[in-house]
């Protein structure tokens, strides 16, 4: 039961209806900026002659949720990666770590929070599709279950192999995402990273972090052992010192 979006860049006409609907849905200032910011969660960018939508990829195992020290970012079972502004301390590790450069900060505010797409989690809870998908006139943004969307994507690619490059972006990138992209040009030309590992990035840090209890217990035992040996040696020297003097 995981909701997802399929973004077919070959069908996008760049009308920007998705951005406008997003603004309204999230009570954001209505001016649509050139790139995503803390006040514009999605835009349509023109790259290599292609209209490509920028938005949160809603990773299956999100890097932002892994790095957030207070757990303000969270992957919900229904698909969206949501953000709890009340917990956020503003360390901006999510902005630094996100492989898709999604979370943005309110740099102009004295009391700032992060801004990012939350896949219309409140709408999804009511059984509605995302605002962007509901207004898309061409079906370039297509809402559904992730497994179903992967099947749709494969069908489209099989039906028109000349129209698409043979890759679904988001199928495996960084462990897979709930937003999937299709394209007619290589994804690197769309400003998307193509050097991402196919496993969640959080595994890289967890491999070290999960050792912390071992370091503490083993390290503590070793250090105390060293202390015991060195001080015992000194004690023995002190006690035996005069005796060896007597023997002389």
């Amino acid at each position: 039961m995981s909701h997802a979006l399929l973004l077919d860049t070959t069908r996008c006409i760049g009308c920007g209806a998705c951005s406008a609907a997003c603004k309204e849905q999230n009570d954001l200032p209505l001016e649509i900026e050139d790139a995503t910011t803390a006040y514009t969660f999605t835009v349509v960018e023109k790259r290599a002659g292609v209209n490509v939508r920028r938005m949160c990829m809603h990773c299956l195992s999100p890097t932002c949720a892994s790095v957030c020290p207070v757990g303000a970012m969270r992957k919900t079972p229904s698909g969206p990666v949501v953000y709890d502004a009340k917990k956020c301390i503003g360390c901006r590790y999510c902005i630094q770590a996100c492989p898709f450069d999604v979370p943005k900060y309110q740099w102009d505010k004295a009391i700032p929070v992060v801004g990012k797409c939350v896949m219309c989690a409140p709408r999804l809870a009511k059984g509605l599709p995302t605002a962007c998908a509901s207004v898309c006139p061409t079906g370039a943004t297509f809402f559904g279950e992730r497994d179903e969307l992967i099947r749709v994507a494969r069908e489209r690619m099989a039906a028109e192999p000349a129209r698409y490059v043979d890759h679904i972006y988001g199928l495996d990138e960084a462990g897979g995402t709930s937003v999937l992209l299709l394209s007619g040009v290589p994804f690197s030309q769309l400003g998307l990273r193509t050097n991402l590992p196919n496993k969640p990035l959080g595994q890289l840090t967890w491999a070290v972090l999960s050792r912390v209890p071992d370091i503490v217990t083993l390290g503590g035992a070793i250090l105390y052992g060293i202390h015991w040996i060195t001080h015992r040696r000194e004690y023995v020297r002190r006690v035996e010192g005069p005796r060896s003097g007597e023997v002389k």
Binding site: C68, P69, G71, I89, C91, I111, P112
Partner: peptide, 26 residues
Amino acid sequence: YDLGQPWRIWHAMVYWNEHSVMFEVA
């Protein structure tokens, strides 16, 4: 100075995320 909302620095003691390196650092 660096934290966006430094007055919430105590959150790291209350809201745990042991998967976060920043949590360990804190």
